[in-house]
Structure formats: C-alpha cells, structure tokens
Design a protein around this nucleic acid. Structure first.
Length: 386
DNA sequence: TCTGGGGTCCTAGGACCC
DNA sequence: TCTGGGGTCCTAGGACCC
C-alpha cells in the first residue's frame, strides 16, 4: 500500500509582469531601467523618417514628472536604482531620473494574463486566480504524459517536473518569465515563490520551514501587512521564526483571538486553505484621484461631472460582466488623506447608471465636505447575476 | 514631492425579529 | 417591573493584497 499523496500547491508569479509585457513590444528597452505608471500623457512618440521609412520611438523619462501617479511595476534594472512598486513617481524621479516611464495598458496585460493562465490550465486545470499576474495551482495528483501512472515515484519529484513544464508553457504562450514554488500549502508556496526571483523554481517541503522560512522578516507572510508587522516588531518579533515561538496568550492579547491564533499558525507554516477554482465577484467600483484637490464649493461643476462619469463607468462594468447590485456606495478622500465611505441598500438590484447616480447622491449628501477632495469613488456591492 | 485603482475580508455596533 | 439570548441585515472603517 502506498502512503496518502501529500497536498502539493504551487504559486506562480509572473516576473515584473506589466514591465515585461511592455518590453515585448519595445525590445529596444531591454536592459534599461523602466517603470510603469502615471497617466496617459507620457505615451512613447513614434516618428517615421519620410525617406527611409525607419520608425524611431522617443520615450518619456522619469525626470521632470509632475503628478500623483505611483509605480505599478519596475524592471529589475529600475529596482536596482532603488525604485519599486507603489512608490510615488515624484519620489522615484528623484532617485532614478534617467529611468524610462511608460503608461499602463491594462487591456494588453489582461490579454497576456489570459494567455498564461490558459497555458497553465492545459497542464494543471485546478487554478485559483489571485489577480492579473499570479495564481495558485493545485498540483496534487497532476502528472505529465511522461510520468508512469503506476510508478510509485516521489510526488515531489513529479511536482518539480510539472513546475518546469508550467514555466516552459508560460514562456511558449507569452514570451514571458515567471517564478514558481511548490509547497504543502498556499501560504508556504506564496512565500517561497519570492525566494528565487526572477525565473525561479523552488521546492519547499515542510521540513524546510525552519531553515528557509523562519529567518525571513514576518512581513513576508501574506496577511501580515505594514501595521501588523510594526506591532510585531514592537513586541520583539522581527522574523517568522521568532513569531513561530511566540506565546499564544501574548498574541491573543495584542491581536485578538482570531488573528492572534492565525499569526502563530502561519508562522509555523500551517495552512489548510483549499485552492479555490471558482468565485463570484462581490463588488464593482471605480474611483479617481484628482490632479489637484477640488473644493466642494468652487469645483462643484467638475465634481458633479466626474461623479456622473464614475457612475456610468460602474454601470458599464456591471453590464459587461452581467451583474447588478443592491448596495450603492461612495468613497471620498480628503486632502489630509482621511477616507470616508457611505453606502445605502436599495430594494432591488440595479445596473442602471441613473439609478446608481441617484443613490450615490443620497450617500454623498451625508458627508460633510469641509475639506478639499482628493479622491472620489463609486461602488456597487451585494451583486447578483443580472 | 508624499501616498493609484481595483478588490476581499474582518470587526463592531445598532436595528429588528423571534 | 425587569429582563433573555440568538440570528440576520445594514453600515462604517480599516487592514491587507495585487
């Protein structure tokens, strides 16, 4: 009798996804520091020599960028200059003025996203979407054609072969590289896929946790964000290993029963969550940050215009996806970065822009507009199929 | 020169109902 | 006169993730 097959979960993360997609169409940028972010304005400019027909592209540089954009993705060459995801472009321009700046082209990234996911699905059909550039893959029981169905070989070795095949299939389908880790669960696979980037392949067994996971900063655990990490640090828990040996009562005291218990489990590398192959959206929203903060009094016309436009876009998104929702909400961020939300629940679900606008207006009226407004957003939740 | 846009999940209090 | 629990829905805010 053979032993029960261990659960094998892979996490696949595309390397510098948006930037890598851009390098496919602008190969002349390979090897250069490139960042993706900001608005539509800094589109590359193409000029064609009328005599030779040669096309030359001129790219925007980070230097001189003025605005509120942030970096969504940076190439590894740009990261080496000290800039990276979520950094304001103004700050990035100080650090890496020579870096090339490209606007994001989400339609294009979504197309590549579909391609790499389809390529993975063809080999291992049980995948969980984790956004545009990463997925979990359940590799339990997955075999390649060359794997003998009867052979009692090591499932971990089979998983390594499958992971290699996935990487090859993704490259074949997209021309892009990715990093994959295989582990006993999602939590460990997620941490491990980051250990060997880019183009990585990591196999992490339970026995490897003390050596490979415990030395890492606690922040590397998916679910420990900046707030929790700072609190943990203040309690003397800097690494995952230190957290793994913490007193459960102390964690409960500072983080609550649920999160406290989870922190300990996570640090010990335990995670029973299944790979979820199907899910329904819970909400659809649109929001925008203004180039300059707007005054409720002086910029009333502009605000109304944007407000109606956001409602129309949300309605269009709902229609395209085939949903209607009952809960209509608004979100405001003021110049001091304070964020407030208001929502209201309708009798019946809607996907109509006019109805959404009407409900959103009633929400907006419940907010005191004493400060200038930085961001305005509209959301529809409690979705059902239209 | 601060800090995007699209999401999910959790908590907590109050209303309301049984 | 005083006093139950449990369950669900709604709303607001916040942490976190990609």
């Amino acid at each position: 009798m053979r032993a029960a097959a261990p659960r094998l979960v892979a996490h696949l993360d595309m390397d510098a996804f948006y930037a890598s997609v851009e390098l496919l169409r602008y190969p002349e940028l390979r090897g250069l520091p490139v960042v993706i972010g900001g608005g539509r304005r800094h589109q590359p400019v193409e000029t064609t020599d009328p005599r030779t027909g040669t096309v030359t592209r001129t790219f925007a540089r980070l230097a001189g960028y003025a605005g509120r954009g942030v970096i969504t993705t940076a190439t590894y060459e740009a990261r080496a200059l000290g800039v990276g995801s979520a950094m304001g472009l103004m700050k990035a321009a100080q650090r890496a003025p020579q870096a090339i700046l490209l606007p994001a082209d989400f339609d294009r990234y979504r197309a590549y996203s579909r391609r790499f996911k389809d390529a993975v699905r063809a080999i291992a059909p049980r995948i969980e979407d984790r956004g545009i550039d990463e997925i979990y893959v359940d590799l339990t029981g997955v075999r390649l054609p060359e794997h003998d169905a009867d052979a009692d070989d090591d499932p971990w070795w089979r998983a390594r072969d499958v992971a290699k095949a996935l990487k090859a299939a993704v490259r074949e389908a997209t021309g892009l590289g990715c990093s994959i880790a295989v582990a006993p669960n999602k939590l460990l696979a997620k941490i491990a896929s980051d250990l060997d980037k880019p183009d990585g392949l990591t196999i992490l067994r339970e026995a490897d946790v003390p050596v490979r996971i415990w030395p890492l900063p606690a922040r590397r655990v998916n679910g420990i964000g900046p707030k929790a990490a700072a609190k943990l640090a203040a309690l003397g828990f800097g690494t995952v290993g230190e957290l793994a040996h913490a007193d459960p009562a102390l964690l409960r005291l500072h983080f609550g029963v649920h999160y406290g218990a989870w922190l300990l489990e996570a640090a010990q590398g335990r995670d029973e969550r299944e790979v979820v192959t199907e899910s329904e959206p819970k909400s659809v929203s649109r929001e925008t940050t203004f180039e300059r903060d707007l005054s409720a009094r002086h910029d009333r016309a502009r605000l109304s215009e944007v407000f109606a436009w956001l409602c129309e876009r949300v309605a269009a998104d709902l229609a395209r996806k085939g949903y209607a929702g009952r809960t209509i909400g608004v979100k405001l961020r003021f110049d001091d970065f304070r964020t407030v939300t208001r929502d209201t629940t309708l009798e019946a679900a809607t996907q109509d822009a006019g109805e959404i606008l009407h409900a959103a207006r009633t929400c907006l009226r419940r907010i005191e507009l004493a400060r200038r407004i930085r961001l305005l957003g509209v959301r529809v939740g409690t979705l059902q199929h239209a």
